[in-house]
């Protein structure tokens, strides 16, 4: 069975038809061309597919596309303001917080969700806030520093 869905993605009205059992991640990647969210595991254990759904951080592999009707999704593709990178994005580059980069979109979405809730997080807050995102390259050190730097910048 296919489902017809009208939803909002990064502020844009989007319509799609997907299988009833199709994860949102597959819809984003295969139907909408939004390949920024990555499938690292497909079981909610790595966070590479993280998106923000109605204000909450979720793994898009654990959401059905069919559920999306009338809801609102933010993905990595909507994070920058036009040509201007979000402070988190810029700080990830400046702090060498990425190596292979495949986990980076998920980390940025998780960091975004964290800083919205907690603009002045401790190192521990950051570490636990990002614990749902696996990175195998960096040992997390530079990621934590990038989030600290972005938080500071965003607080002004």
């Amino acid at each position: 069975m296919s489902v017809h869905v009208k939803t909002t993605i990064n502020g844009d009205q989007v319509e799609f038809v997907c299988g009833a059992d199709e994860p949102l991640l597959d819809v984003l990647r295969n139907r909408l061309g939004l390949t920024g969210a990555k499938e690292g595991c497909g079981t909610g254990d790595c966070g590479a597919c993280s998106v923000i759904l109605d204000g909450r951080l979720v793994c898009s592999c654990l959401v059905l596309g069919a559920e999306m009707d009338g809801r609102s999704v933010e993905t990595i593709e909507g994070m920058a303001d036009g040509a201007k990178l979000h402070p988190l994005q810029q700080q990830f580059i400046d702090n060498a917080a990425l190596q292979c980069g495949v986990c980076t979109p998920g980390f940025l979405m998780a960091a975004q969700a964290l800083l919205r809730k907690n603009p002045d997080p401790t190192e521990e807050d950051i570490r636990f806030g990002l614990a749902g995102n696996l990175c195998r390259c960096t040992g997390y050190d530079k990621i934590v520093r990038a989030v600290q730097a972005a938080a500071k910048e965003m607080r002004g």
Binding site: T75, I76, Q89, F92, I93, P105, L108
Partner: peptide
Amino acid sequence: RRPDGVDKVTGR
């Protein structure tokens, strides 16, 4: 800054 940085932080 790495040349692949922007692509990697924007999902591109």
